[in-house]
Nucleic acid binder design. Structure first.
Lengths: 180, 180
DNA sequence: TGTTCCTTTCAGGAAGCACTGAAATCATAG
DNA sequence: CTATGATTTCAGTGCTTCCTGAAAGGAACA
């Protein structure tokens, strides 16, 4: 054991902080708010079930903020509410499976962002369809249909990708159980 | 010709507005600012080369704003500066290939967002490596390495995807040229 | 070189978004 | 039913990000 206990604790804390900051930065990429990401970061990296007060203390944010963002995380399915016997408090813990988390976020974003876009594009196409004899309308229609083609293609690709992954994961799980 | 000319113009305008609003909404998904997206939207849907004043008028935004966002779009490679003979003004036109645009945005985002994340995660792993005898450190190390595994996998997948697409596109292009 | 036209820069201001903290609500135990 | 502990809500506030417009900069023409 090269490091003294206090040094080890400090080092762990440092990694935790770095990780939470990282999650914060990542939040824009995942399409969630920074604080939501930081809370999830703490829950993921510690791997423990924490109470609201734990999280308030670790991240130095207000009770209301924690409450609101935790409920969003639960709503998204990234975090679960758990209970500890003998305690009235709610505790919260993160999913641990990276794939599962990714899938959840991707689904949410598709529903909230991609689907409305597809609807709008289709609607635009309809409106342009009524101007078939207009050259400008034809050109614009072509641009929109190319976008639609691209997006639907990406979508089906993604769907197949997730299905495959689910299949793979199930297979791996079954094998592991049999070999026990 | 069912519709009168003024009606046609109005209808085209309506589609254009809807499209620009759509792009605006999409901007968060693509990781660019709303105005940048709207400018690109106008350029894409019209398919024309427009001047700064054209864009200012269509979107009702200030000269400075247009200037700054156009230069970002040019920097990203989504928009090209073109010149019209006999005019001192700069004109700007959008790429028309959806795939190309998507690739450009994806590359930018990877460079700006994914790569730093990978670096940080690796750095965290190093710091934890020095605490090999600590159980907590081991657990956290495992979580981080799972993330790394996931991200690098996604990255190589994406790279292969783009390479394939480039190959496909080239092939299609060659065939089309031969058949002329 | 001076003039004109066009573009870029940037300090100051506006708008939107997230956070706080206290009051209201809810749940459990006695 | 009341008291206590825990969570949620939301109006007010602070912060960040984006936008404006005027002034400076640059390029083409005469």
């Amino acid at each position: 054991m090269k490091l003294r206990k206090t040094d080890r604790t400090q080092r762990l804390q440092e990694v935790e902080d770095r990780f939470v900051d990282l999650w914060d930065t990542m939040s824009s990429l995942w399409g969630i708010s920074p604080t939501m990401a930081r809370i999830h970061g703490v829950l993921y990296i510690t791997g423990q079930a924490l109470s609201m007060d734990d999280i308030m203390a670790r991240l130095a944010i207000s009770r209301g903020n924690v409450s609101m963002n935790l409920s969003k995380l639960v709503e998204w399915g990234l975090v679960r509410r758990v209970h500890k016997r003998g305690s009235r408090r709610d505790y919260y813990e993160s999913l641990s499976d990276v794939w599962e988390m990714f899938t959840l976020v991707a689904q949410q974003r598709k529903r909230r962002e991609i689907d409305p876009i597809l609807n709008t594009l289709r609607h635009c196409q309809e409106m342009l369809g009524e101007l078939q004899d207009d050259t400008t309308a034809q050109e614009r229609g072509k641009r929109i249909s190319e976008l639609l083609k691209f997006l639907t293609m990406m979508e089906s690709l993604a769907r197949r990708f997730f299905e495959t992954h689910q299949g793979l994961k199930m297979a791996v799980g079954l094998l592991a159980r049999e070999s026990e």
